[in-house]
Simulated scan of single mutants.
Amino acid sequence: MQCTNCGQENSRDALICSNCDQRLANTQAQTPPPLTPINISKEAQNVQHGSPADSDTADTLLATFVGEKYDSYYREKWFENSQPRLTLDKKDTPRPKFNLAGVLLGISWLSYRKMYKIAFFVMLGISLLDTVLMYVLGEQTYNVLSNSLFLGVGIVITGLFGNYFYLNHSIQRIKKITSSNCDSNIVRERLAKAGGTSWLGAIGFTILLVTMSVLISYFLGPDWYWVE
Rank of each mutant, 00 (worst) to 15 (best):
R23I: 07
L167P: 03
T158M: 05
N81A: 09
S180A: 13
I171M: 13
G125Y: 02
S198A: 05
G196E: 06
P52W: 09
N99Q: 15
V210C: 10
G221C: 00
Q83L: 12
Y135S: 07
L129M: 12
Q45S: 10
S108N: 02
E9C: 10
I207S: 08
V187Q: 00
Q45P: 04
I157L: 08
N46T: 04
V156Q: 02
V47L: 15
Y135D: 09
N185M: 11
T87C: 02
D59E: 15
P94Q: 09
T211N: 10
Q30R: 13
P32T: 05
L61W: 07
K77T: 10
W199R: 06
G204W: 06
F219N: 05
N5Y: 08
K114F: 05
Q140I: 13
P94N: 07
T87V: 10
R95K: 14
N168E: 11
S213Y: 02
I203N: 04
N181G: 02
F161L: 14
G125V: 02
N185L: 11
Y225S: 02
N39S: 11
N10T: 09
R173Q: 12
L104M: 13
C6I: 01
N99A: 12
S217D: 14
I157P: 00
A101Q: 08
K69D: 06
V144G: 00
E76V: 07
F205E: 01
S148A: 15
L145M: 13
E43W: 12
Q28I: 13
K42M: 12
Y166K: 03
A58V: 06
F150R: 05
E76D: 15
G196H: 05
Q8P: 01
R188C: 08
T31K: 14
V227H: 13
S72R: 08
N99S: 12
L191M: 06
L15V: 13
K69T: 11
D92V: 08
P33S: 10
E68T: 12
E139Q: 12
S198Y: 05
F165S: 05
T31P: 09
P96H: 09
G196V: 08
I207Q: 09
T211W: 14
G106S: 06
G204A: 15
Y225E: 03
S180K: 14
Q8M: 11
I171K: 08
E80I: 10
T197P: 00
E80A: 14
A25H: 09
G159P: 03
Y116P: 01
A202K: 00
L215G: 03
F65M: 07
E76G: 05
G106Y: 00
V210A: 14
S18E: 09
N81I: 07
L133N: 03
D183I: 02
L61G: 01
V132D: 07
L100I: 15
K42D: 12
T178C: 08
L24C: 03
G221M: 00
N26W: 10
A194K: 01
